[in-house]
Amino acid sequence: MGSVRTNRYSIVSSEEDGMKLATMAVANGFGNGKSKVHTRQQCRSRFVKKDGHCNVQFINVGEKGQRYLADIFTTCVDIRWRWMLVIFCLAFVLSWLFFGCVFWLIALLHGDLDTDYKDDDDKSKVSKACVSEVNSFTAAFLFSIETQTTIGYGFRCVTDECPIAVFMVVFQSIVGCIIDAFIIGAVMAKMAKPKKRNETLVFSHNAVIAMRDGKLCLMWRVGNLRKSHLVEAHVRAQLLKSRITSEGEYIPLDQIDINVGFDSGIDRIFLVSPITIVHEIDEDSPLYDLSKQDIDNADFEIVVILEGMVEATAMTTQCRSSYLANEILWGHRYEPVLFEEKHYYKVDYSRFHKTYEVPNTPLCSARDLAEKKYILSNANSFCYENEVALTSKEEEEDSENGVPESTSTDSPPGIDLHNQASVPLEPRPLRRESEIGSRR
């Protein structure tokens, strides 16, 4: 089982795998120059863009038009607004034209077009017409509009002379109601789609790998820009990579689940303020055997998904993003964004995407760390350097704002901070800030 798991979770494809794949392509008759073999020097295209759209195009789909027309309502909801407006206008105009032609044909076959009612006051002739005051196609078209929109100006009306005319008036009224219901329903469904809710759900630009509770963890940050909550919010993550099976089958995008606390339930989050999602790199993680150097040379993509129900409509929305291997910062942490004021908490989104480097973060893999092949620094050293990194950030910001350097908390000259780390230190809580992250 261990060997199978290692093969499945191998992220960085070796040169031997690339040569094996190329040999397979030639042997199977696919070596026509169009096949692409992804190596370390040639990274694959992003499968999920940063804005959440999937970078996929469908080609050679059989009976595409028929399949889309069979699900016309979903098609109308998914198309762009400009095409929705075109369909909206065409549906009414074509129905008016169709029934206008029908009423014109009825008048033509009944002989109503030969009668001039402007110079004739004989009401008996008017009563013999199928539709009064309809003696041309324009008049028939206007009567069709008046019937379907129930305008009723009063000059044109159907008589009991022709039952077919009466039937067409009733039929057009029913068709008009159906068109109204369909168009209004599609427009309302399109307006109520929770897709735009994703514009106020954000992911951090970069993911980070750092120590948390004595273990290497992959972390990324999510935030909600609205005050309205995302009900039943939960997160998922998958690692996408290519691999070759033991039988020699090439899988271009193998999807591997990344555990973010599904078993323990901590994948469900209360997204009021930005939260750091934590994936513990343990023996079940696809990143277990990867060191910093392996991450730098790897070719994979981590897709992160945030799902929840919109509070206003109770409709489920899904926000997506992805991180390539070069977008994962090893040995970094996110800057705090949640600050405790006197009577409330304040979230500073200008710090949302910012990170700071944490010294002495192990550069080895989580496996080597678990097997004690890498000796961690003293816990006080880690905490102290973590505090120094934050303090230096604040000093830089104070210097930019014009604060005198004498007010900063610099260490005395001639003292090495790293050498001082081995000395037991008193706890130094942050002056006014605390970061709330997901705790395992």
Rank of each mutant, 00 (worst) to 15 (best):
Y68N: 11
G308N: 04
E161L: 01
L425T: 14
G331P: 00
Y374E: 15
L369D: 01
V166H: 02
V166I: 04
T6M: 06
S291T: 10
A370K: 14
N259Y: 06
P163D: 02
H234K: 08
L113Y: 03
A210G: 10
M219H: 04
V208H: 00
S132K: 04
M188Q: 11
A139V: 00
L239S: 02
I178L: 15
N401H: 07
H418I: 13
F141P: 00
D180R: 10
I375K: 12
D51Q: 08
L417G: 14
V388W: 10
I164C: 05
R5G: 14
A379K: 04
C383M: 14
E395Q: 10
V358M: 12
G52W: 00
L369K: 02
H332D: 02
T276G: 05
E357A: 08
M19K: 07
F92G: 05
N326M: 04
E307I: 04
T138N: 04
D416V: 06
N326V: 03
Y334R: 01
V235E: 00
Y9F: 15
V26M: 09
C364W: 07
N419R: 08
D294T: 06
Q66L: 14
I151G: 15
I295M: 04
Q41H: 07
S321L: 02
F137N: 02
R243Y: 14
A379D: 13
F47S: 04
S406D: 11
S422C: 09
I251H: 12
V48T: 08
E435Y: 04
R80Q: 07
S127W: 14
V310E: 12
N198R: 13
T361E: 05
V202N: 07
G176I: 02
C76A: 11
K342D: 08
S246H: 08
R82A: 08
I11V: 14
Q255V: 12
K190I: 09
Y356Q: 15
I436N: 03
K193F: 08
S45A: 09
Q420G: 13
G18V: 04
P336D: 15
Y250L: 15
M315A: 06
K215Y: 04
G185A: 15
L324P: 02
I151Y: 05
T74L: 07
S381F: 05
T361C: 09
S381W: 05
A140N: 02
R432G: 05
F203Y: 07
M211P: 14
C89S: 05
D78N: 08
K64L: 13
M315E: 12
I184M: 07
D296Q: 09
I72G: 14
S228T: 14
L430V: 09
R320I: 12
T409I: 04
H205Y: 07
V93L: 15
G154E: 02
V48C: 11
Q42I: 11
T149V: 06
I302T: 02
S273I: 03
L329W: 02
V126F: 15
L109S: 15
V77R: 09
T39M: 08
D160T: 07
K346E: 04
E433M: 09
C43S: 06
R40F: 06
V37A: 11
V310S: 13
F47P: 00
H418W: 05
Q42A: 09
T159D: 05
D121G: 14
H343L: 09
T74Q: 12
T138Q: 05
V337S: 06
K125Y: 15
G248S: 11
S242W: 13
S264N: 08
E15R: 06
T409V: 08
R320M: 06
I151M: 07
K64Y: 05
K64R: 10
S285E: 01
V26A: 15
R67D: 06
G33R: 07
L85P: 12
L90V: 04
E426M: 07
D116N: 05
I269W: 05
R221S: 01
I209P: 00
S406P: 12
D289T: 08
T407K: 12
K125F: 15
A325E: 02
A421Q: 11
S45G: 11
F339D: 14
G62K: 15
E335L: 07
A27Q: 12
D289W: 03
N135G: 13
G62H: 12
I251N: 13
Y9V: 14
I269H: 11
D368W: 06
V388P: 13
Y68V: 10
R67Y: 04
E435D: 15
E371V: 08
K190A: 08
W96Y: 02
N28L: 04
T317P: 04
K227P: 03
V337E: 02
K342L: 04
G29L: 04
S13D: 10
P336T: 07
F182R: 12
K195N: 08
L363C: 13
L85Q: 02
G29R: 07
F270H: 08
S95L: 15
D213F: 08
S204A: 09
D112P: 01
K227L: 07
L97G: 02
T75D: 07
S408V: 13
I179Y: 13
E247D: 09
H353E: 12
L363Q: 11
T407G: 13
F182H: 07
K125I: 15
A165E: 02
F73G: 14
K118Y: 04
S285W: 01
V310C: 12
D368C: 05
S350A: 11
A165G: 06
D71I: 06
P412N: 14
R428P: 13
S132H: 04
M315R: 09
